[in-house]
């Protein structure tokens, strides 16, 4: 079951310049494994070598930060959108 994964600018160079890619999995961990299979340059970028989320990365399933759901074990399904974003200070810009 593919989910939509939105990539931040800093990762697009490792994914052929794409802003959004499809990946398969029923949990986030599986989705990220599939992403790295497709784009080996993403290895270690979002999930560190010891299997945790990078300190300055926020990952959202739809609108929710997965650190407060089940982290990498968070379940995903077909219509979900996974967004990867760098953590930054303060209020961000209004864009949608």
């Amino acid at each position: 079951m593919p989910v939509d994964v939105r990539l931040p600018t800093v990762l697009r160079q490792h994914a052929g310049g794409m802003a959004s890619v499809k990946a398969n999995g029923t949990t986030l961990a599986e989705v990220f494994d599939d992403l790295v299979r497709q784009f080996p340059g993403l290895a270690g970028q979002v999930v560190t070598d010891n299997g945790t989320l990078h300190k300055f990365v926020n990952v959202y399933v739809n609108d929710d930060d997965v650190r407060y759901l089940d982290k990498l074990e968070t379940k995903v399904s077909d219509d979900d959108v996974v967004s990867i974003l760098p953590a930054v200070a303060g209020g961000a810009l209004a864009t949608n």
Partner: peptide, 13 residues
Amino acid sequence: PPAGEMVDGLKSF
């Protein structure tokens, strides 16, 4: 709030 263009300026995480 939604993260906007601001995060595009970062060179790495």
